[in-house]
């Protein structure tokens, strides 16, 4: 049994994470913000409104904005990179982000759920039937049991099936994205056994009630 209270206290003690933003590709960087600036992540029902512009990067005469991935305050900026040609994946900005309820919940759930890890570094997909179900009614509509063929592992242009092994239950959380490479050992899904549902629900309620977000964090 996990101690939700202790976990919450622990997170309350350091309610921030540092989010590092890196260049998506090469190009000439122009920084638009100084440390201390308030930024917000994408907004809207479909996340259709982009986050605050942190910088622009120009490559092949195409000036592209780089948006803040999340809410927070700019902690530091690599000002020496301003107007310079930078390599891809060069970090240039750190955002101090106050954890949201959803993030706190996800972090605690990761400790409470059964995590099924990726056996090797590869891209993972759900098998078509499951994928359809997940898309239509969310991952929690999917019941898994030991030995069930659940994933397709895509590696080096080859695809092979992967069976789930672990306790039966519903998929409570999905930790991989489309076409993301997942490292060996990283969790793919978090499974909640049927008899644990009440416990998990309790965790959710506790976090909802006890985690307070500062104004304007929405």
């Amino acid at each position: 049994m996990i101690d939700v209270k202790a976990l919450l206290e622990e997170m309350k003690a350091s309610p921030y994470t540092m989010v590092e933003v890196a260049t998506p590709h090469t190009g000439v960087l122009s920084l638009s913000l100084a440390p201390g600036a308030q930024v917000r992540g994408p907004l809207g029902s479909w996340k259709e409104k982009k986050g605050t512009t942190l910088a622009t990067i120009e490559r092949e005469r195409n000036v592209k904005p780089i948006h803040a991935p999340t809410n927070g305050v700019v902690e530091s900026v690599a000002s020496d990179l301003d107007t310079a040609f930078v390599q891809a994946a060069t970090p240039f900005c750190t955002i101090r982000h106050y954890l949201t309820k959803a993030e706190v919940l996800a972090a605690i759930l990761k400790k409470a759920l059964f995590l099924f890890p990726a056996p090797e570094r590869a891209k993972y997909y759900f098998v078509p039937e499951v994928d359809k179900k997940v898309r239509a009614s969310g991952s929690r509509a999917v019941k898994v049991r030991d030995g069930m063929e659940l994933f397709i592992v895509s590696r080096m242009k080859r695809e092979s099936p992967l069976a789930y092994s672990g306790p039966a239950g519903i998929i409570y959380a999905v930790y991989f994205g489309l076409a993301d490479n997942v490292d060996a050992g990283d969790p793919l899904i978090g499974v909640c056994p049927a008899d644990q549902l009440a416990v998990i629900q309790d965790v959710v309620n506790r976090v909802q009630a006890e985690w307070e977000e500062p104004e304007g964090n929405g």
Binding site: R59, E60, R61, N62, K64, A179
Partner: peptide, 20 residues
Amino acid sequence: RDDRTVTCPRADEHGCLDLW
């Protein structure tokens, strides 16, 4: 006629690279 690239508006969802 312009030697430049443009970004596909759906690049975020589809991973489109910049187009010449």
